[in-house]
Design a protein around this nucleic acid. Sequence first.
DNA 1: GTAATTATTTGGAACGTTCCAATTCTGTCA
DNA 2: TGACAGAATTGGAACGTTCCAAATAATTAC
Lengths: 357, 357
Amino acid sequence: MTKARVTVIDIAKAAGVSKSTVSLVLQGSSLVNEATRAKVNAVMRELGYVYNRGAANLRQAGAKSRIIGVVVNDLTNSFFAELAVGVDMVVQSAGFVQFLSNTGESIDRQREVVASMREHGISGLIVSPARATDAADFKPLVAAGIPVVVVVRNLPGAKVSSIVSDNRAGMMSAVKHLAALGHKRIAFLGGFPDTAVFDDRLAGYRSGMEAAGLDYHEELVIAAAPSRAGGVEAIGKAIALGRRPTAAVCFNDAVAFGVCDGLRARRLEPGADFAVVGFDDVIEAQAAVPALTTVSVDPQGIGRRGAQMLLKQINAGKAEAETVTTAVRLVVRESCGAGKAAPVRTGKSVKSKQDAE
Amino acid sequence: MTKARVTVIDIAKAAGVSKSTVSLVLQGSSLVNEATRAKVNAVMRELGYVYNRGAANLRQAGAKSRIIGVVVNDLTNSFFAELAVGVDMVVQSAGFVQFLSNTGESIDRQREVVASMREHGISGLIVSPARATDAADFKPLVAAGIPVVVVVRNLPGAKVSSIVSDNRAGMMSAVKHLAALGHKRIAFLGGFPDTAVFDDRLAGYRSGMEAAGLDYHEELVIAAAPSRAGGVEAIGKAIALGRRPTAAVCFNDAVAFGVCDGLRARRLEPGADFAVVGFDDVIEAQAAVPALTTVSVDPQGIGRRGAQMLLKQINAGKAEAETVTTAVRLVVRESCGAGKAAPVRTGKSVKSKQDAE
DNA sequence: GTAATTATTTGGAACGTTCCAATTCTGTCA
DNA sequence: TGACAGAATTGGAACGTTCCAAATAATTAC
């Protein structure tokens, strides 16, 4: 009952030309006569033809599927959602489509989705690898000539392009800002020590302390889950310290929010009684009370850049693996106690969110 | 240099069987001898074979691509991000993959991505249509036998399945809650009047007022963009009213946040001086200060349900268009002024967000 | 030991496109 | 008018799979 698919041959027959000509029209070749082209297009419209990319792709077995895969750990995290949107923007305007999957930080899931994407013939992959991803995991892909761009977290051993934000510089500027505000004991709270991102941010913290002429005390570095709950836990430990800190830089914004919660639970007002600075500048950061001073990393920009890099590699056929570090900037709001001072270095405005159903 | 693709024929040759047998193994047919199967599988692993779904799909020209398309308006809105995650969960565990695209509320973009998805041979589509989507827009899809499930916003004329939350009941319970708290003049703030969702929520508001024995005053319904900015604008107008309201139900959480902002700008404390209730229960709702009382719609659940419905239709070959309305529940927090009273009807706990890079 | 079953395996012929080499159709020029 | 160039068109032959009907191998029944 459902009528058979309209194929290029049907078009050819109806337009009185050969299938080759129709194919030529499809690819916008300049070899075909203007009148014929018009005729063919008309017939296509009339019969409701839909291009079968699968078939085309089969013939021109190359990286021409125009599908690019995107894999993230946690889409519900607005950081990654924005990243995906950034990718989608450039990918879509280049005539590609996006295959998006969510690993939920599961390495098995990641393997599954990547395999599935491969079967579907993606022409490139952008991935924010799940924790503990093996650097060799993407080896087969690149061996098969499929460009891979790693974002957000870098994969030390892998010979793929990557684009990460400047965690070191970001954390350093956060620490320097707090030091300039007069703080001497500044804690580093949250994050899992086994990750590269943690290492980078911690390194930035140490450099910042040093640059400000402050001593580094191991007790002030308190690891915890990079989540709100982790933040609560970390600030608890920090406050229990003999000489308690007066300020903290946090592994990320979620931790920072948790720290604020923990402070309030102890009748301390974030901003006034204790300075806290986050990292990421997630959407909630500016809406929270007090608004969070944080290091803005522009996830959407990373997505766009990653996509551009990937497309470049796809078009080039073969490209060197390059590593890019994107700049970050400190956005001063209220939680650091800098008061209502106009935000410094605020740069471009953050797009206000729409919540429209 | 890049060695040619390993095909089923290569496997056949290496394993000393015919390509047909390899194909049988691929599909897990029970016709093939256990020993042969093992042998073939071994060879496949050894040669690093990757299945070419495109080719397979070409042969068995049916709805067997195992790709399902997902189209949302605004991925950066956590509501839709969660929805997409819900879809991904069930879709992925059913062995399908997800094609996700973002229209950014642009109807042209929507047309583009849907067309592109069709070319790629999706076996089904889940869509939260952009505003002003024509009901006939998905006609060709269903005519071609591709099941479509519309979520969140319904499309009156279209003969497709849809799954929307119970906007009416949700808004009604919000109003009744405020009335029970003693409020008499309750406003309805935000939202664009030309949408079905707006109509439903407004209807719920009216029913709620009526049920509580309160009069409906047209002046208390103030439309505005369904965004934070819209909320600020709406509360401004509400407060300028002769007899100002003492409480408001908002079109959604974003509006509610804007209303809170607007209140504070006038030295009114949300919760204490003016009660506000949102709609959606986005992640930020519980983290905000004051925590937002809102109607929880469980976007992830909608995503899961939508995906299940779609898969059912795909498997059934042909399914009737059904419409499902999902239950919602009021989550009482602080912004309604119900104080620190333990949340009533809190149901299942909301998963705490992780922000882990 | 042969016939009848049953269990495996196997060559093509599709599927809808693109590519290649070859063909036909225009004129144009001597 | 015939030869020639360029423009436009065209039949196959791929691409990597699945399906079908048919062939072969293994087993059982008489």
